[in-house]
């Protein structure tokens, strides 16, 4: 479990910010207005943002600054959005990335090939 750093010896206290709410896989969460989706989720203990499209293994943030695309999620119906560079807005609907069908492989598996 992670937590917010409310006071910091050098950077000072966290300024009071307006809160917004959003959903992640149909669960309601709160965020500070304008903070990144990845930060808002991590602050509430959510680390898995998607599963690998083929293997189904869990994935979360890696670079946190938009380079690596590991944190891609579906935001308001749009796939492949990066959670680390998207600010949370009121009522945002976020879905984790899901595994995709691997039709050729599945067919082979079911036909003993």
């Amino acid at each position: 479990m992670t937590e917010r750093i409310m006071s910091h010896p050098i950077l000072g206290d966290l300024p009071h910010k307006e809160k917004v709410s959003f959903t992640f896989d149909d669960q309601l969460y709160e965020a500070y207005k304008g903070e990144s989706l990845a930060a808002a989720l991590l602050a509430q203990g959510i680390r898995t943002l998607r599963v690998h499209e083929e293997t189904g293994h869990p994935r979360g943030i890696y670079c946190n600054i938009g380079h690596c695309f590991e944190c891609r999620v579906n935001i308001n119906g749009l796939d492949g959005e990066r959670a680390c560079i998207t600010p949370v807005t009121e009522g945002m609907v976020v879905k984790s990335g899901k595994a995709l069908p691997t039709t050729v492989r599945d067919w082979r598996k079911h036909h003993g090939k």
Binding site: T2, E3, I65
Partner: peptide, 19 residues
Amino acid sequence: PGVMSVGAAQVMTNVHRVK
């Protein structure tokens, strides 16, 4: 999940203020 670049941890900690 939980493995990140060291810069990612820096940004989470100092910019977003999330451990």
